[in-house]
Design a protein around this nucleic acid. Structure first.
Lengths: 97, 97
DNA sequence: ATTACATTTGACCAGTTTTGTCAAAACACA
DNA sequence: TGTGTTTTGACAAAACTGGTCAAATGTAAT
């Protein structure tokens, strides 16, 4: 199962960059990026988009990864997760109309 | 499409109670309950359980309503909602193992 | 229109959580 | 040991939440 941290760590390693370099480029403290890569902290949406652009990753893929991490985290203690997701789906569908 | 606010408003009206009375009984400010009923504020989990008990509503139903409101709210601006929910479902399944 | 009561609104505060900064500690390895 | 990278943790600033209260608004009866 993938997650946001893995995606950006792999992307960075593939490009052979150091945290320091990415930090300078994106203007985000390298300690924070280290935490993002280990899923210890959640980035903001703006940061997600910065990573997508810089690493040339698909924006949508990265956003989905990030948002689903968040949702999964919110529901982590809930044994009702399945029902909740189904109900949420209905609500979102309904709102679209 | 139902939501948490509607459920507790209907329950209160069926019992013919005023906000003031419910507020006193549950020890929650009546202004806040008013906001819960209009979905202007989200209650805490403890408050959800208080309502379930007081109105004799099914705990699980109310919790699902509350959590799915929250998830739907988080995804309200995202046209990726479907993908996000599917991904979140996988992540939750995966974690259970 | 005035009274009486219920609900809603909005300003404010306090406590919590989130985000960012930094330097020191830990790690890797020549 | 020395050099460079990553991780950790303490701290502060900013953003978000939840609660309190009083004033404003709504509603119905007289």
């Amino acid at each position: 199962m993938s997650n946001f941290g893995d995606l950006i760590r792999i992307a960075r390693e593939e490009k052979g960059l150091f945290l320091r370099q990415v930090a300078a480029e994106l203007d985000i403290d390298q300690a924070i990026i280290s935490k993002f890569e280990r899923n210890e902290r959640k980035p903001t949406k703006e940061q997600v988009l910065k990573f997508a652009k810089f690493y040339k990753l698909d924006k949508e893929t990265l956003l989905v990864e990030w948002l689903s991490d968040k949702v999964a985290y919110d529901l982590k203690d809930e044994n009702l997760a399945d029902k909740v997701l189904k109900a949420a789906e209905q609500k979102i569908k309904y709102k679209k109309k």
